[in-house]
Simulated scan of single mutants.
Amino acid sequence: MEAAQEAPKRPPLDVIALSDEPFLAAHGIPQLTVVESTGSTNADLLRGASENPAAYPDLTVLAAEHQTAARGRLDRRWEAPARSSVSVSLVLRPVNADGRPLPTQSYSWLSLLGALALREALLETAGIPAELKWPNDVLVRGRKVAGILAQLGPMHGGAVPPVILGTGLNVSLTTAELPVPNATSVLLEGPATVDRTVLLKSYLSRFALLYRSFCNADGDPAAGMAGGHSLHKRVEAVLTTLGKQVRAHLPGDHEIIGHASRLDDYGSLMVVDSGGHEHVVTAGDVVHLRPWTPPGQEPEGGGRRGSAESGYA
């Protein structure tokens, strides 16, 4: 890690490779656009889907070389150097093979599905073993390398509203450029590649496969998916949050302390307190979720507490 302090060369995304017609067609991506700079790819797609829904079909992709007003959960804002990250958003209009919309309660799984796809892409492409942190982070060795932000789009004519799914992956950030101390980047983890085009194509292909399988199962997280186990089981298997003592900070200065035991059918975190009561913690409500160590005990990880709060990258 110490040898990678100078900012590396940061070539642009290969638009020709990303726009390859066979690649797009094979993954059901109707259009993929790369812009040099924008405030937020999520905001752009939310606005576009509102003003002209027909022009933004399912799996429309927008990537940016630089975002100047990117935001994550609870409106946390962040900015990374140009061409140092994979910043991409997708329009999702989930329907099954018969064209029937998925129940909106299944939408809560989409950010976890995106995180799982990114984890698989990092392992496959860069050789990096990543894990998930509930509700929307991807970690490498306990440090945040990426985040996911799902936002519900506008409803038109009674149609089911789309979901805009944004993903921010730190790729070539040096230690000095990290947004918070508990973050990391692909570059800092000894990767097989830091080629953002390769990483983005791998992520999109993984996501499209999982997403289509999830849609064809009518959004049932317990149904078997492409590649084997259900989405529910696959997420739980790589969710570093489970089995830990956590402190969930909720709106109104409320908190729940207990054992993170499992995910429920809606992707919410179940936390069992010291009295044995099970609490439902939803991604939409939680302000912060952090490891918790009882007074007088050593925290896990050699004393490192807290979590990166850097939005969706």
Rank of each mutant, 00 (worst) to 15 (best):
A3T: 14
Q5C: 14
P11W: 00
P11Y: 01
P12N: 07
D20G: 11
L32Y: 02
G39V: 09
T41Q: 02
A43D: 15
R47G: 09
R47Q: 08
G48I: 01
P53W: 00
A54E: 14
A63K: 06
A70S: 13
D75C: 13
D75R: 14
D75E: 15
R77V: 14
P81E: 05
S89H: 03
S89E: 03
R93N: 05
N96V: 04
L102H: 03
S106I: 01
L110I: 02
S111G: 09
L122W: 03
P129I: 07
E131K: 10
N136Q: 08
L139R: 04
G142C: 15
V145H: 04
Q151N: 04
L152T: 15
M155P: 11
H156M: 05
G157H: 06
V163S: 01
P179E: 09
P179G: 12
A183E: 09
L187G: 04
V194C: 15
V194G: 11
V194S: 13
T197G: 12
V198M: 10
L200H: 03
S202D: 07
L210S: 06
R212H: 06
F214I: 01
C215K: 01
G219M: 03
D220I: 11
A223F: 04
G224N: 05
G228D: 12
H229F: 00
H232N: 09
R234T: 06
G243F: 00
P251A: 12
E255L: 07
I256K: 06
G258F: 03
L263R: 05
L269P: 12
S274G: 15
S274N: 10
G276M: 06
D285M: 12
V286L: 10
W292I: 07
P299A: 10
G301I: 00
G302Y: 14
G303L: 11
R304F: 05
G306R: 02
S307N: 09
A313I: 08
